[in-house]
C-alpha cells in the first residue's frame, strides 16, 4: 500500500468525499486517516464548510417581478394561440 503525506491527503479530500478515489488510493487514504489526527480534523473542517454553505441566505423574487414574468407568459400564450 502506498503511503500518503498529509500534503497529499488534503488534495485528495474532495475525490474522497465524492467517492471518486480508485480502490487502492481509497485504502491508502483511509489508513492515513486512522493514524493522523490532523488530517481527520481537516476532513471535519471540510465537512463543516459544506454545512455552513448550505445555510446561505437567499433572495426572493419581488411580487412585482413575478407578476411581470406571468404577464410575459400571458402574452406569449396569446401569440401562440393566434398561430
Amino acid at each position: 500500500m502506498h503511503e500518503l503525506t498529509c500534503a497529499q491527503m488534503v488534495e485528495s479530500i474532495t475525490d474522497y468525499l465524492e467517492g471518486a478515489l480508485p480502490p487502492d488510493e481509497l485504502e491508502s487514504f483511509r489508513a492515513h486517516l486512522l493514524s493522523c489526527d490532523g488530517c481527520d480534523a481537516y476532513l471535519d473542517q471540510m465537512r463543516s464548510t459544506v454545512r455552513l454553505l448550505r445555510a446561505a441566505p437567499g433572495h426572493r423574487l419581488p411580487v412585482a417581478v413575478e407578476s411581470a414574468i406571468v404577464r410575459t407568459f400571458r402574452e406569449w400564450n396569446g401569440t401562440r394561440a393566434d398561430q
Binding site: T5, C6, A7, Q8, D37, A41, L52
Partner: peptide, 20 residues
C-alpha cells in the same frame, strides 16, 4: 516527516455553526 502537518488544523466543533 516531510509533507506531514507542522501546524495541524484544529477541530472546529460547533463553533462556526454558533457564529453563523
Amino acid at each position: 516527516n516531510a509533507g506531514h502537518w507542522s501546524v495541524p488544523p484544529r477541530r472546529w466543533g460547533r463553533q462556526p455553526e454558533d457564529l453563523l
